[in-house]
């Protein structure tokens, strides 16, 4: 491993731990020989959570597979910002076909590798929440049901950001988007029943499902690495804040991703064959307001007359998650 002299500094979060670890325990990104699968120079916005998540996820998959990864990308921000030619940022074999078929294309690549006896080559499909929970849902469910040897990664920024911030089925209640305007009696996105893709993936009984966050990058790497030890259909759902779509400062991407976890709105867990096997405990529980307030998409909740009942409704969701996934340490 190539070593780099680094200075110790306090980042205000748990990331400091990485610098104090033995070299072989450090993160993939701390390694100078990391693959930079999604290389620098792409056109993502400042503070893009998706670019960060994809970089960590794919590099971790590369390390876990001895650099034998083929990626199939859905249409969306990740595809667009990474590939204007001749400046492709992908250092790995990569294909983009359509918005709604990444999982099926990956099935095809996996079938080709199987028939050619290339068990060493691992297939990843990836897309945003629109490409995963909406238009690509049929193909994704088919891939799960057949238990095809594909790791599907959803980078969830909770709306169609590439087309200008329209609502998806992953958009949270009350959020303002270009198609759920902050006007009228019930401003923002309606309170539907939601579409929890990790739970739907678990309902298929696939061998591995996990949620991850760009605020917990070691955890994200560990989950990708774990997924790569498993054969069959696997699903990782990563929350990736979008400064543009969420109306947040680019420097708040990590902070918001962490607050989503600490409020209980985005639980971090792993599941195998449909059963939750672990969840990340919340160290410092925070009210949902702390997460919502810095985001302009929720600004209408905090006007002259705060939307008390709406906030209470969102808090209920967070509280339910905390109970459901056992997100708080038990203090007897």
């Amino acid at each position: 491993m190539t070593m780099q002299q680094i200075k110790f500094y306090q980042t205000g979060t748990f990331t400091v731990g990485n610098r104090l670890l033995d070299a072989d325990q450090r993160s993939v990104q701390a390694n100078m020989e990391r693959t930079n699968s999604l290389n620098s120079g792409h056109r993502a916005c400042q503070g893009c959570g998706e670019a960060l998540g994809a970089r960590y996820a794919i590099d971790a998959a590369m390390r876990a597979s001895n650099n034998q990864v083929i990626a199939c990308n859905a249409t969306g921000c990740l595809e667009v910002f990474s590939t204007p030619y001749p400046e492709t940022s992908w250092q790995i074999p990569w294909i983009h076909s359509l918005f709604g078929n990444a999982a099926a294309v990956a099935t095809g690549v996996a079938a080709a590798m199987k028939v050619k006896g290339r068990k060493d080559v691992r297939i990843i499909a990836q897309g945003g929440d629109g490409g995963t929970t909406d238009i690509g849902f049929g193909c994704l469910s088919g891939m799960f049901e057949r238990n095809d040897d594909v790791l599907y990664i959803c980078y969830d920024n909770q709306a169609y950001m590439n087309t200008g911030v329209q609502r998806s089925s992953a958009t949270p209640p009350a959020a303002r988007t270009a198609t759920t305007m902050a006007i009228g009696a019930e401003p923002g996105n309606a309170f539907g029943q939601g579409k929890n893709l990790p739970l739907i993936a678990m309902a298929h009984g696939i061998p591995y499902v996990a949620t991850a966050s760009v605020a917990y990058l070691r955890d994200l790497e560990a989950k990708v690495s774990r997924a790569m030890t498993v054969r069959g259909a696997r699903y990782i759902h990563i929350l990736v804040p979008c400064p543009l779509g969420w109306g947040a400062a680019p420097h708040d991407t990590i902070k918001l991703a962490r607050l989503a976890v600490e409020t209980g709105l985005f639980p971090l867990f792993e599941a195998e064959h449909g059963e939750v096997t672990s969840s990340t405990k919340i160290r410092r529980r925070v009210p949902v307001e702390d997460y919502l307030k810095p985001q302009k998409r929720f600004a209408h909740l905090f006007g002259k007359t705060p939307a008390v009942s709406t906030l209470a409704h969102i808090q209920e969701t967070a509280d339910r998650n905390i109970r459901k996934y056992g997100l708080l340490e038990k203090h007897d």
Binding site: L98, N101, V105, T107, G108, C139, S141, G142
Partner: peptide, 17 residues
Amino acid sequence: VESEFAALSVAIGASAA
């Protein structure tokens, strides 16, 4: 597969590989 859209999409992936 689960649809014709998937059938040809799987074919696209396989052929590209």
